[in-house]
Design a protein around this nucleic acid. Structure first.
Length: 272
DNA sequence: CTTTCAGCCTGGGCGC
DNA sequence: TGCGCCCAGGCTGAAA
């Protein structure tokens, strides 16, 4: 489920629920997680929950206020969910996709992940948690900065948008949606975009991601937020999974193709 | 450096 | 019912 808007949604909903709570214990149910630092988490208080790149990060205070801050980062990959469960809710028995549980004072956070691609790890500092790629919702993200990141890349622009080491947070749904919004052909070499197009691309990136956050992300089958509810952005998708339908702008048939082993959806008339 | 591609894992959906 | 494909909001690492 996880692109930037979905991860942001989970973090925003988890923060008031789990924030300020003490971690009583951590249970790892799936050895494939490869996480064995439960003891370092026990007794720490969650100061806040937020998104960094595509990760949900629990910032943890030191119990005595002396040692350095610690950050627990969960990457949901394709099917991960973090769901807050209040004290009175049901048990975990019978949930075969439950991978880990954070036991808190008042309830628990369940890490549920059918395909088991998700990861859980610790960062020792704020700096270490920072992703390599630029944060697209930062004020400084604009035509000039995206142009600088792109410079010289002959990759197709849609494939380039998925590079987390350049821009973090955009995934396969929003890459197609962003390019449709700004009218840029997904097959164009990234370096072929002129300044005006870079400006449109930067603006559409912010616009689409912000709108998706406003609607709590996109749900097809897997995504659920921290309360086990679904997102609402799917009704605003213009091209993703709409191949064969008419473009909302011009009526031309939306096409699907494969780039870098991922589906791309676009309008061949609107996007040049 | 690039680009491609198999692989990680567990399904759902389709055609036969 | 079953089998064999293809598909899926991500990302890595090996190979060419």
């Amino acid at each position: 489920m996880p692109e930037l808007p979905e991860v942001e949604t989970v973090a925003r909903q988890l923060d008031p629920l789990a924030g300020r709570q003490l971690i009583r214990g951590v249970e790892i149910l799936d050895p494939l997680l490869g996480f064995s630092e439960e003891e370092r988490l026990r007794g720490r208080r969650i100061s806040r929950v937020r998104r960094i790149g595509k990760e949900v990060v629990f910032q943890l205070e030191d119990p005595k206020g002396k040692a350095a801050e610690l950050l627990l980062a969960v990457h949901l990959r394709m099917t991960g969910r973090l769901i807050y469960q209040g004290e009175t809710d049901g048990s975990d028995r019978g949930d075969k996709y439950l991978r880990a549980v954070l036991e808190l004072e008042q309830g628990k956070v369940r890490f549920h992940d059918m395909r088991r691609f998700g990861t859980m790890k610790l960062y020792e500092s704020e700096a270490e948690a920072q992703p390599a790629g630029a944060e697209p919702l930062d004020r400084g993200f604009n035509a000039a900065s995206i142009g600088e990141l792109i410079r010289g890349s002959s990759m197709e622009i849609k494939v380039w948008l998925l590079r987390q080491d350049r821009i973090c947070g955009i995934g396969n749904i929003y890459a197609s949606e962003i390019l449709h919004d700004c009218g840029i052909d997904p097959f164009r070499p990234a370096s072929s975009l002129n300044d005006a197009e870079l400006g449109l691309l930067a603006a559409s990136t912010k616009k689409i991601l912000r709108k998706a956050i406003k609607h709590c992300g996109t749900t097809f089958s897997d995504f659920q937020n921290a309360n086990g509810e679904v997102g609402g952005y799917q009704k605003y998708l213009r091209v993703y999974q709409h191949s064969g339908e008419g473009c909302r702008h011009c009526g031309t048939e939306i096409l699907r193709a494969v780039q870098a082993q991922r589906s791309t959806f676009w309008c061949p008339a609107c996007q040049r």
